[in-house]
């Protein structure tokens, strides 16, 4: 028996470099659980879509009349509502993703022990992370499709590239869902959710969402560039207007990097918390 174990050390060593039990079996069943849970709460799904639409109407009727035309991507003049709509799509993708992966995840992790139950099966932390994040992205995707349709109906899309708004929204969702879930694993009590609000609120307001980044003095613009939402907003705005350039690759790369870091951090944290 001794000799057998010695020969098994080789591959075992490589596997040991991965944190214990993190190998993935496929996160599909984790997503399926969420679908079952939400099969009866479709009203919440509807409200998640209604909110950005109400915003859009407010900008169309109110601010739009007040502000008039603004300089959009590529220097062309656009209606204010057409300027702000793609940014709202990005912001709602962020808000939806953060909402879905913070309180519900905290509840399942700390109180309902849903993830402990999952880890007693062949599922591992990577499955849980990917499954929960995917669900947030799917849910966000449903909202985005509806949102883009509303934009089309309101005549806010001026380019066929606008169909790419939906995949772009999924990328934004993925980035924020995975970072949101990673952060949730550090929270210890429900009152600490205020910290997340404290981060999300300024991101929402200051990521060039409501006015172009040129409004800021040169010296603070780098701060806006740090905001992950800014990259989502710029991406969406360019796509909606049909003004594409290489900087978009950079925006996607930033969001993809966040997503990757978030998934890895979430898996690691779930492993550390539950597989002790």
């Amino acid at each position: 028996m001794r000799t057998m174990d010695a020969t098994q050390r080789g591959p075992a060593l490589i596997l040991r470099m991965l944190p214990f039990g993190r190998y993935t079996q496929g996160p599909g069943s984790v997503v399926e659980r969420s679908m079952r849970v939400h099969s009866r709460t479709w009203v919440i799904m509807v409200s998640g879509f209604a909110e950005p639409v109400v915003y859009l109407l407010a900008f169309q009727i109110g601010f739009g009349a007040l502000v008039g035309k603004v300089v959009g991507p590529g220097g062309q003049l656009v209606d204010y509502v057409a300027f702000v709509a793609p940014a709202l799509l990005a912001a709602s993708a962020m808000n939806g993703a953060v909402f879905e992966t913070t309180y519900p995840v905290f509840f399942k992790l700390r109180y309902a022990k849903v993830y402990d139950a999952m880890l007693a099966t062949p599922l591992g932390p990577v499955d849980i992370a990917l499954g929960e994040i995917s669900w947030a992205v799917i849910r966000g995707g449903v909202y985005s499709v509806a949102f883009v349709l509303v934009m089309a109906v309101m005549g806010l899309l001026s380019s066929p590239f606008a169909v790419l708004l939906v995949p772009a929204a999924l990328v934004v969702s993925f980035a924020f869902a995975s970072v949101g879930m990673a952060l949730s694993t550090f929270l210890r009590s429900p009152s600490q959710f205020d910290y997340i609000r404290l981060v999300v609120m300024p991101l929402f307001l200051f990521s060039a969402t409501f006015y172009p980044v040129s409004v800021y003095p040169e010296s603070v613009r780098w701060l806006v560039h740090v905001s992950p939402l800014y990259h989502g907003v710029e991406l969406m705005r360019g796509l909606a207007a049909g003004v594409l350039d290489v900087s978009m690759i950079g925006h996607v790369a930033v969001l993809a990097a966040l997503a990757a870091v978030g998934v890895a951090a979430t898996s690691r944290r779930i492993g550390a918390l539950l597989l002790g």
């Binding site: 098994q8 591959p11 214990f20 039990g21 190998y23 007693a120 062949p122 599922l123």
Partner: peptide, 12 residues
């Protein structure tokens, strides 16, 4: 099997 390397297979 070794739980360290075959965890998912054992848990199945």
């Amino acid at each position: 099997m070794d739980p360290e390397t075959d965890g998912p297979r054992i848990r199945a």
